[in-house]
Nucleic acid binder design. Sequence first.
DNA 1: TCAAGTACCGACAAAAATGTAAGCCACCCA
DNA 2: TGGGTGGCTTACATTTTTGTCGGTACTTGA
Lengths: 122, 122
Amino acid sequence: MGKKQPDSCGLGPALEVIGGKWKALLLWQIHKAPARFGELKRLVPDISEKMLIQQLREMEADGIVHREVFPEVPPRVEYSITEFGIELDNALIPLARWGKQHAGRSDGQRPGKASVLAPHGL
Amino acid sequence: MGKKQPDSCGLGPALEVIGGKWKALLLWQIHKAPARFGELKRLVPDISEKMLIQQLREMEADGIVHREVFPEVPPRVEYSITEFGIELDNALIPLARWGKQHAGRSDGQRPGKASVLAPHGL
DNA sequence: TCAAGTACCGACAAAAATGTAAGCCACCCA
DNA sequence: TGGGTGGCTTACATTTTTGTCGGTACTTGA
């Protein structure tokens, strides 16, 4: 396994970084303005703390968000988008536009799809 | 449920249509040339027949691929990309380029991610 | 001393996505 | 009559992802 097929496009790595139920939404929020943990919790009320921190950590590991701890009291941790994340964000714009334009054909959902990917306000 | 948040981007619907382990790869193959069921099976050898047909059906329901049965013998079913699918494909190009450029930072995978999304030659 | 706020961690469980394996039906060829 | 091909369908199992809930550590304020 792990062999690359000769005709691969770049969607694999990209979807690994931005796929899943929450990451796009989080990137979207963070790109609008840096935000702290609790703030994100409020902005995305349906996410559990576990998922929030998990996704943030993965996005940090992937270099698309930056985590900064301010040694204040009470403690403050701020998440902001990186240059790299901005590039990704830009690359997502056409896709977002496509989704926006064609949102609502067979809307609601296809029967049987419970929509783990982005069931929210994406 | 189903309420849209005021500041939604269009990634929700888009990821619903193209997300998951196989769809991008299938769209990629079909966009290169129309293909029949058995052909796709050969082109994407790791996919099970069940997943193949399931994803094709969903993509058909989403209007990005077209299914045509030729009343020949032996039976022939051909899957081709629709106009709508081509638009999606185009919208994916920047993302694919981003992925290609930056594939291989923390490559292999992040620890603990088993990569259900596109573990292949995407 | 007790509650509340901030930013987490981790065991366990539910839910969703994907995989396995078998079978079906119509037809051809031998 | 039997085996092979093509395009599925179905029941069941496994893997992956997401959720629930409780706990930690520190500090301020009542």
